[in-house]
Design a protein around this nucleic acid. Structure first.
Lengths: 215, 215
DNA sequence: AAAGAAACTGGACGCTGTCCACATTCGGAA
DNA sequence: TTCCGAATGTGGACAGCGTCCAGTTTCTTT
């Protein structure tokens, strides 16, 4: 992989960069997109920003700190992908059908992002230590909801339309999420990696159906 | 974390180590158990074996090669954990109840291993590149089946006892696996990390129930 | 006893994250 | 306007990593 002479900006003339934090974050996102969390390397980010390695420390406390910022961005993009999928299926239907379509869209958007932006998806769930799912605004999508909240909203509609008895509502997001997330993992770097994408789509639909039926 | 002066053997007197490959593999497994795949570092393994860093290259082509060997060992231990759980529930029951208990045991064993041997579990599914689920004998448990085969066998019994219509059998392992694997991931380093273990057990049972019902 | 293969050592290289001391520039107070 | 402190970026260094190359020691085979 020739990663050396890439995206080197035209040798800035000013001493100050001007917007280094954003530049580093952008480089980090690009790196993650190309090669996952492992590929986020501080020195390469500074190289792409045209700046000395240590300059990064004025904006990020450590490599881990940069990784975390990229992670937030990835989660935000994931939320956007889910919202896009939800918006796609907006038709006039019965409340019940709408609730079903909504939940399916949440799952489908999640999977689409996982398979389309694999590097970012992996980064979004890369955890050296434990991860808190705080209400960090940097992780939300355009709707103001993060991925977890989007799923919760979809399940609330299930209860609202009587598709899910209220006593089974608590913690239901974890059942749904488990299935879809696990499936994504198995496809991305598990035994389903070699299965043709056409078949994947079918199995993915069955995973979502299993959730609808079994939740 | 004081990781330095650990398990240094008593300064071997012979030039040859005698059983270096096994020693390195053992050190690698210990490292993985303590800190996951990330913690498997070649130089540390050689240090623990009391040998120069390069000596490792007589037995493993690269760090990745050692990682792979540890991975196989981890998968084998996972299979053992699953088998143990299956054996626990062996009582005289109807074939149907036995099939249900079998599938639940497969899931429960998987989860138990994931939560008990987190480092090894993470290692088992760490994939820098893509991973093939070959019939590598080093990955099997005592029964001669690897984790995937154990799950397949459990599902076959479901079909055999009429609990699962044959037309839904194909690829069903991926539905079941997705749910349980995803749940493990969410607990290990996802948003469920902070949830008390008592509650986790309950949600885990519901995940498995969802699979039984929704598959 | 000699030769050849196998196992291990020693030193080096380039890469990484991070630390420290220094240089430059900007913005506000005098 | 000038000066001074805070913010930002540079340069050099360090230890640790995976890996390569060239030796050295030992075991095995002839």
């Amino acid at each position: 992989m020739a990663k050396k002479l890439r995206t080197r900006p035209p040798a800035r003339t000013t001493y100050r960069h001007g917007d280094l934090r954003r530049a580093l974050l952008g480089a980090g996102i690009a790196l993650a997109r190309e090669g996952g969390p492992h590929a986020i390397v501080l020195r390469e980010a500074t190289r792409r920003a045209g700046v000395a390695p240590n300059a990064a420390y004025r904006h990020f406390a450590s490599r881990q700190d940069l990784l975390e910022a990229v992670r937030s961005a990835a989660l935000s993009e994931l939320a956007n992908a889910m919202e896009a999928e939800i918006a796609k299926g907006r038709r006039a239907k019965s409340a019940e059908e709408a609730a079903r379509a909504n939940l399916r869209a949440v799952g489908a958007g999640y999977l689409r992002f996982a398979f389309t932006e694999t590097g970012l998806f992996r980064t979004a769930f890369a955890t050296p230590e434990l991860l808190g799912f705080t209400g960090d605004p940097a992780r939300k999508g355009k709707s103001g909801l993060d991925p977890f909240e989007l799923l919760s909203a979809a399940l609330d509609k299930f209860v609202g339309t009587g598709l899910l008895p209220p006593e089974r509502r608590p913690a239901a997001e974890f059942l749904a999420w488990s299935a879809v997330h696990g499936f994504a993992m198995l496809v991305i770097d598990g035994p389903l990696h070699t299965v043709p994408r056409a078949d994947i789509e079918g199995i993915g639909a069955r995973v979502i159906a299993m959730v609808e039926k079994g939740i």
